[in-house]
Amino acid sequence: MSAFRLLVQRDLRLALRQGGDAAMVVGFFVLATILFPFGVGPEPELLARIAAGILWVTALLAALLSLERLFQADWEDGSLEALSLMPLPLEAQVLAKCLAHWLVTGLPLSATAPLLALLLQLDAAGYKVLVASLLLGTPTLSLIGAVGAALSLGARRGGVLLSLLMLPLYIPVLIFGVGAIEASIGGFGVGPHLLLLGALLAGALPLAPLAAAAALRQALE
């Protein structure tokens, strides 16, 4: 367990010292969201109608943007090979890296979202569910993303490839995330949507590290 904590701390420290990651993700989230009113027009009713979708889609793209760096730096400087010799199983290491990745991307995204929702005139009923759905959904994005990041290690055109691999797999999270917010605005129960988001997370939690570790092993072969 202490090895797990050390790994999380190491990744967090690296992310914070290098500075760029969390700021870049949140920056992209803010900029992309702000572009929408210019694209679709400033009518409050229209913005309120599509706010949930805009926020979730841009948050998803922002999370996608940071995925490439999940294993890339460690793979290039060889520390991934050193890490794979640790007694801690590779699956647990993937989990630690996902946790660190979520802390510097998913968490700040969830924290920024209400502010942007204000700009997009999101209905007052939706704020709590917006944060809740992002908190439940973004860990799943990090976990599934780890599989893609591990698979595309050392590939040509890694970034575009990663988006192509990940977008189909992200669709369920997007559907239930937006569904929860729209249900709360419409006055319906949000329980089913949030439970399904939780189910996706509960499924991804054991399965994604397994697949990602298998992918890392064959990248290290």
Binding site: V147, L151, S152, A155, L165, P168, L169, I171, P172, I175, F176, G179, L196, L200, G203, L207, A211, A214, A215, Q218, A219
Partner: peptide, 23 residues
């Protein structure tokens, strides 16, 4: 890598199908 992706995809296909039906 493709083999692992195909397995990830087959696990996800029913989930995607279900979510899209729901949608």
């Amino acid at each position: 890598a493709g083999a692992i992706l195909a397995l990830v995809g087959i696990v996800n296909l029913p989930i995607i199908k279900f979510s899209v039906d729901w949608w």
